[in-house]
């Protein structure tokens, strides 16, 4: 049991600012984030114009005000809990080995590949950007088959395109490639 009883102020830890302390208490970042969201929600609710016709006694501001206040309260409670030594339990699963240190490089690579798809889907079309997404993700996750990886990516992407675009009637951009084929 920690005896630290710093008041809930997630932004400014009162303890000596050593790096290990911050790493041990990184969950305070969650608290900070909740605080920021709470302020955002409250600010948005308070700046709403009230001249709109309000039907009923409860207007569009009431629920955001309640949610925003709740966020501030929870941010404070979470900060207190973390400072008292409370920790959230990290998620587990079949393929998850929490003993391994977090592999942030892979996560960043995957996020980058995913963003790349968002940028490329309209100019290049889904069959190409989707194949790049699959291939890039598999590469980021450690697959190194110079022939098999792109082949699977291309087949998966084309089949999915036809399935959604032609069979299910959910339009996906074909891009220049589909113009040629």
């Amino acid at each position: 049991m920690s005896t630290r009883t710093t008041p809930a102020d997630p932004g400014a830890p009162a303890a000596p600012g050593s790096r290990t302390w911050l790493r041990d208490h990184s969950e305070l970042g969650v608290s900070l984030l909740l605080l920021v969201i709470g302020v955002l929600v409250l600010a948005d609710a308070l700046t709403m114009p009230l001249d709109l016709a309000q039907r009923g006694p409860v207007g569009p501001r009431t629920v955001p005000l309640a949610v925003g206040t709740g966020l501030l309260v929870i941010a404070a409670l979470l900060a207190v809990d973390v400072l008292r030594g409370g920790r959230g339990e990290a998620g587990t699963g079949e393929d998850i080995d929490l003993a391994e240190p977090g592999d942030w490089r892979t996560v960043l690579l995957l996020a980058g590949v995913f963003l790349g798809n968002a940028v490329l889907i309209e100019p290049l079309g889904f069959p190409v950007s989707g194949a790049l997404l699959f291939w890039g993700s598999a590469y980021a996750l450690g697959s190194r088959h110079p022939r098999r990886d792109p082949l699977i990516a291309a087949v998966l992407s084309l089949v999915t395109f036809y399935l959604f675009n032609n069979l299910l009637g959910v339009p996906l951009p074909g891009g220049p490639l589909m113009g040629v084929l």
Binding site: D95, L110, V113, F114, N117, A118, I121, F126, G130, L133, F134, W135, S137, A138, Y139, L141, G142, S143, I152, L156, S157, T160, F164, V170, L172
Partner: peptide, 20 residues
Amino acid sequence: IPRPYLYAGILFFAAVGAYA
């Protein structure tokens, strides 16, 4: 099934779903 394919596939179909 190789894990890279499994999780790459999840990301792939997630992108399809969101775009749809």
